[in-house]
Design a binder for these strands. Structure first.
Lengths: 220, 220
DNA sequence: CAGTCTTCTCAGCCGCCTCTCAGGCGGGCA
DNA sequence: TGCCCGCCTGAGAGGCGGCTGAGAAGACTG
């Protein structure tokens, strides 16, 4: 979600998290564009009036880069741009402020559903599965208990399975900071290994020295 | 393209081939499903009303097998199924007969474009491949393990394959310095040769005496 | 308020990676 | 044929990235 009004952004984040969504925030256009480029998002909620880089330009830029992540645009009704502009730019849907929270969620679900056919609700990597909605993780048919932080880390790695993910990226998305000691990531990867790999003789969580970590898509 | 009306299928095939697409035909659902399972298709055009196995079931079956090839569904407007059904099944787009040929091509291009964005760029030189996102290198289908420095060097050489690249350029781009002893480049080229060339009897990493190195684009 | 769980910091250890060095090889040229 | 210079390579030292056990501080629960 790219939204510069912090109170509104925080409120929507809480609400959506309660619905079971995982929400990353960006507070200006530059940051939003940067995060969207990382990929891994099912949908982007994009305000038009933003500091540094307008939502208009964020959308234009993403589409120019052939990034087709679904985008739901938000705008004040007295804004410079209107719905036709938004859709012309490659947005997938459009809401005018003030909007109803319920309507926002409904539109989001519609956008997600549109993509749902291609994306399984449960993340998997080999026989390792993670269900974001139910907060459950299993190796084969054996349940694995994880703490919230461990779960968030594993979810992020599974969404990007087979890719090498740097500690900086992990800190940004899982810890929501970037200037923390990266050692905390090493510690938590260690915890995960002891829970989802070691007891099963697996090696799905691989260290890529100097680059980050990779979760093997075939489960290690 | 899975379409049982032979005249229509042949006409579309000719038209699409003229646009530069390579088109395989199937005339019933069983055959279509069988061919789609072979993989290697960028998009499937799938009629709903088909002999032996309906497009509805072909789509359902493919998704159940976690085959996420983009599917464009075609149907008669008076058909038993409507657009919502098609999309719910995991189709990516939907056209109602009669449709305009121009619209079909536009939709196909949209689907292809969407997938291009989510597919990571992989560098290749002959049967040598390097995936920057996954940090993986393979000669043919054999994985090759590289250290970070080796990987960075090979990536740079592959991005400029077939060109002669001087040691100074390599130092600048891979080591980020220019006043280092160029011998380190020689050492690392040697390491790479032992990992990606020698075990396979290849000679992709060529020395151009007095000028630098060249990575043969056909893989050596 | 006690007990438990979770998160995070810290410091020490380990092993791989990086780079240097020196000797060897061979192509080109006089 | 013999020399020079550019390139190759084996050996080894040192550094640094990553792992882990211990424990402190904070959050939650009953």
């Amino acid at each position: 979600m790219v939204e510069d009004e912090r109170r509104m952004a925080a409120a929507l984040q809480r609400g959506l998290q309660a619905e079971g969504f995982a929400v990353d925030l960006a507070h200006d256009g530059e940051d939003g564009l940067h995060q969207a480029r990382q990929g891994g998002y099912d949908v982007v909620v994009l305000d038009i009036m933003l500091p540094r880089l307008s939502g208009y330009n964020v959308c234009k830029q993403l589409r120019a880069e052939e990034n087709w992540v679904p985008i739901l645009m938000l705008s004040a009704k007295d804004g410079e741009y209107d719905m036709a502009d938004g859709l012309d730019l490659g947005a997938d849907d459009y809401l005018t402020k003030p909007f109803s929270y319920v309507v926002l969620v409904a539109r989001l679900r519609a956008l997600l559903r549109r993509d749902a056919g291609r994306r399984p609700a449960v993340l998997s990597a080999g026989d390792l599965t993670l269900d974001p909605a139910r907060r459950k993780v299993a190796r084969g048919d054996r349940q694995v208990e994880l703490t919230p932080r461990e779960f968030a880390l594993l979810e992020y790695l599974m969404r990007r399975h087979d890719e090498v993910v740097s500690k900086a990226e992990i800190l940004e998305h899982v810890w929501d900071t970037f200037d923390t000691d990266p050692n905390v990531v090493e510690v938590y990867v260690g915890y995960l290994r002891r829970k989802v790999d070691a007891p099963f003789g697996r090696n799905a969580l691989q260290t890529v020295r100097g680059a980050g970590y990779r979760l093997a898509g075939d489960g290690g």
